[in-house]
Design a binder for these strands. Structure first.
Lengths: 331, 331
DNA sequence: TGGAAGAGCTTACGCGTGCAAGCCGTGTCG
DNA sequence: CGACACGGCTTGCACGCGTAAGCTCTTCCA
């Protein structure tokens, strides 16, 4: 009784029906090129259901050479709301196609055995730059499909999607009548890639719409750099700040309030990502909402193409970012 | 050349050395009960390294019946900072023992193929209540080790750890001289288990220290219920609010400010979980910091014991919660 | 009426590994 | 001098599945 229950295998189903395992396999997999009468098909399906047969994924993976697992390597960012939505969407799309999406956040300290060695995924999506060593490790583990998302070379996603919101921020501030702006990024090293990209986008957008971007700098609340930044901005006549994300925006608002400035009266602030937090604060934060669902679809499709060795569609995703206007920039 | 590189197998190593595969296997696994001279051991190790041999986890899993994967089913909460730290810790501990920790957040809509069917983990840790159907699905998939974390029956973790912080909140507010309190929970259904637990803890703690807990209610910023709550509290002489988490606390602070009340002057507010956000706001939020690292160790150890069929230690984890005093409750 | 075509199966191998059981040669002890 | 232990290996099966190749019997047409 303490003995562990053996799981039901395809052999059990076959034996119970007096058929061969192959036939059962053909039916269950709907293998093309086999002539099996509907009657037999039904008998097999019924018996499999009756016995509670579940294919053993591990054995399938070994035999077929495909694990039906897609591994998404995430950057070490706090998991924001929009990212979660993206993941959910991607996961659902992949699930419909029979794949499982597993997410993996790397540790600071570095893990001894990275997850791709254990899971043998069919595809790895690298939503963060991966080192040469990691790349080698993947290849040695037999992973041939490695999709970069943020990498320089093939960043279909990087430029348009991840910086479009920044352009919108600048446009919005300009529309609100602001002419002297600043951009605040994160001191967090992990964001550097994205942070740089958005800062650059802010410069471009400012040039284009004709406003002065007087300052771009990383700020933090712990070392007093936000406080300092806010003071300087005010002194130099900056009337609005665009930020890298909602966290930075929240910090900027708090610093302004501490300095006795009113938001948005003395300083307008706009965040990025439209975190739930943005609408919870006072003043509520204007922000940029990302098409996280669309992004999820895009990621999933990229992965599916790669998994089935089809060429990747080169068309950039049609993702929309949108300004969400709230109190922190409303006049 | 376009042909996919075959991966290096133990057979390759054996052949290249003129040894049998079994010997290679014994050396690589350090199998006890085998007498293999150091010289041979070294030859095998060297050759394996030279060829870049990596054991095929899938084959290992099939042969040994153990996947060395531990699946953590997470509630559908926003992934907070402390949770991330818990996961990192647990992941690292498990990694040292050769296990991989995979996290899985269930979808609202329900996924067709849950991850445990695809990964065949050795252990599933359910950090959220799982339905009977899910339990059956796991068992059919051959998973015998299912560890509940939040479940009624065996909630070694639930009561002490997840509600200790609430007691601290009440004590802290009492110490600060507050005598008429309220407790704000989340309207979010997903939190209900935890939410209820903490609300109950708040009642207990209030009784014990001798303060009046005048109101316990779920609040939200979207339907105006926070605003209403703050108004009523003020009218009834409530001077301090303890909350379910930092999000609720932030909402309460914002609502108070909107109503023209000062925090903490007119209303003191304390959060829970010590989110990074807590220190970014103005006024900064007092909160409760959880021993997330300790929790991670605890989870990992539970999983390890289960994975190796050892009895679970009944001793409750020695986890500490601590008040972090910031502006929102400082007089 | 003979042969080909095909329907409806089965047999058998491979995926890469863990591990029980066995096999040969040398040394030791009674 | 024979039995026996043991070091140092090898042979071989199992894990559960995908699937190529083959096998038998019927049908159909020249």
């Amino acid at each position: 009784m303490t003995e562990r229950k053996r799981r039901v295998t395809a052999t059990d189903v076959a034996r119970s029906l007096g058929l061969s395992r192959a036939t059962v396999g053909y039916v269950l997999n709907n293998t093309p090129g086999q002539s099996i009468p509907a009657a037999t098909r039904e008998r097999v399906m019924a018996e499999a259901a009756r016995l509670g047969y579940r294919p053993h994924r591990v054995a399938q993976a070994l035999a077929s050479g495909r694990s039906m697992i897609i591994l998404l390597v995430l950057p070490d960012w706090p998991m924001e709301h929009s990212l979660r939505q993206t993941l959910e969407t991607a996961s659902r799309v992949l699930d419909d196609a029979g794949y499982a999406l597993v997410t993996y956040t790397r540790h600071e300290g570095g893990q001894a055995r990275p997850l791709w060695e254990l899971l043998t995924p069919d595809v790895v999506i690298a939503w963060t730059s991966i080192t040469a060593a990691e790349r080698t490790s993947m290849q040695v583990s037999g992973i041939t499909q490695i999709l970069p998302v943020l990498q320089e070379e093939r960043s279909a996603l990087a430029s348009p999607t991840l910086t479009a919101g920044t352009h919108l921020q600048i446009h919005h501030l300009h529309e609100q009548g602001h002419r002297r702006l600043a951009f605040a990024t994160s001191v967090n090293e992990r964001f550097s890639l994205l942070s740089e990209g958005r800062a650059e986008a802010a410069r471009e957008a400012s040039d284009r719409v004709g406003v002065d971007l007087l300052d771009v700098r990383p700020v933090d609340h712990r070392d007093g750099s936000v406080a300092e930044a806010v003071r300087e901005w005010h002194r130099e006549g900056v009337t609005a700040v665009a930020t890298f994300n909602d966290d930075i925006a929240a910090m900027a608002v708090a610093a302004a309030q501490r300095a006795g400035l009113s938001v948005p009266g003395d300083l307008a602030v706009i965040g990025h990502d439209d975190t739930p937090m943005a609408s919870m604060l006072y003043p509520s934060l204007s922000s940029v909402s990302i098409d996280s669902v669309g992004l999820g679809h895009y990621l999933a499709n990229q992965a599916l193409h790669a998994a089935e060795d089809r060429p990747l569609p080169e068309a950039p995703p049609d993702l929309q970012a949108a300004i969400v206007v709230r109190e922190s920039t409303r006049r």
